[in-house]
């Protein structure tokens, strides 16, 4: 009898915890869903083709996000292009080349710390270094480099994890055939780690896409009614990099600008822009999941 009552009490605590856990999960999920629904209800009516092809305007119904989404896309492009070689290079060095000593340990701890530095601090750093010292201006290039610095710790950490997941037996197989370290890395380790590296990069980018603080710090415009220069030109060499030095705005800044206006209609615009930004983030995370699944299917250890 005493045994049974003890079991009953344990069972009760067990189910109590299950219910508490379920509630905790619902708090997060329901809040998120409510936020999303609110945004969707507010902004849905503004999501027309013209919204994507119009510049911001004094008149809420004519205002659009053309300069904002072009800005976000170009800045993300520069960010990815900068963060990948530097991040992967650092990860390869730390995992494959660096001797295991206190200096390496110190660097590792600091990379973990850098991931926690507030983004506005990166903005201040970029303002001092990129804008004032290197005279890169308040440009797409400066913004891309700033966000690249911001996500670099995440890219390095996830790339290291991907590199570490390549079994050592593969490295030994390559070395045993007479491959150098670099041949082993470029022919085996990196190709097999690509899925993990790309997944980490995309997740880092989807963090960067929502950043506004560091970009405001370096001087992003909040009202911009023209596009950057096109990346091509009619004369040789046909490619143009003028756009890198053009001023820009990005989606979160455009949103903030609209939210801070008194007119109700502008708030609707902000909600619509928020939906677009959310869509961009979800699409990037979806891409990350797709890439991960694809590479998992190809390579099973």
């Amino acid at each position: 009898m005493r045994l049974q009552s003890a079991i009953a009490r344990n069972r009760f605590v067990d189910s109590l915890f299950a219910i508490l856990g379920l509630l905790a999960m619902l708090v997060g999920l329901v809040t998120l869903l409510a936020l999303f629904l609110g945004l969707a209800l507010d902004g849905w009516s503004r999501l027309t083709w013209r919204f994507f092809t119009s510049y911001p305007s004094r008149f809420p119904v004519e205002a659009g996000i053309l300069s904002a989404w072009v800005g976000t896309t170009t800045v993300m492009f520069v960010t990815a292009l900068t963060a990948v070689p530097i991040g992967v290079g650092a990860a390869v060095y730390l995992e494959e080349y660096a001797p295991k000593n206190w200096l390496t340990d110190l660097i590792e701890i600091n990379i973990a710390n850098l991931a926690g530095v507030p983004s506005i601090v990166y903005g201040l750093l970029a303002l001092g270094l990129l804008v004032y010292q290197l005279h890169l201006g308040q440009s797409i290039l400066t913004a891309g480099l700033t966000l690249a610095l911001l996500i670099l710790p995440i890219v390095v950490t996830s790339a290291r994890e991907a590199i570490r997941s390549v079994p050592n037996s593969i490295r030994e197989a390559a070395h045993a055939l007479g491959a150098t370290k670099w041949q082993t890395v470029k022919d085996h380790v990196l190709p097999y780690a690509t899925g993990g590296i790309l997944t980490g990069l995309i997740i880092a980018l989807s963090r960067a896409i929502g950043e506004s603080a560091p970009l405001i710090t370096i001087g992003a415009l909040s009202f911009i009614a023209f596009l950057p220069h096109p990346p091509w030109q009619p004369e040789f060499p046909y490619l143009s990099f003028q756009w890198l030095l053009d001023p820009f705005t990005v989606m979160p800044i455009q949103m903030f600008n609209w939210v801070s206006r008194p007119q109700e209609e502008f708030h609707t615009n902000a909600a619509a822009a928020g939906l677009v930004l959310l869509g961009m983030t979800l699409a990037m995370n979806g891409l990350a999941i797709f890439i991960r699944a694809r590479f998992r299917k190809q390579i099973k250890w």
């Binding site: 045993a176 055939l177 007479g178 041949q183 190809q298």
Partner: peptide, 28 residues
Amino acid sequence: RMRISMVFQKPNPFPKSIFENVAYGLRV
């Protein structure tokens, strides 16, 4: 290592094609 080859305890082929596995030592 180019003169003395090794076969390991657990089969450790590269996750590449059959051809590329055998050709790797030659490519190196």
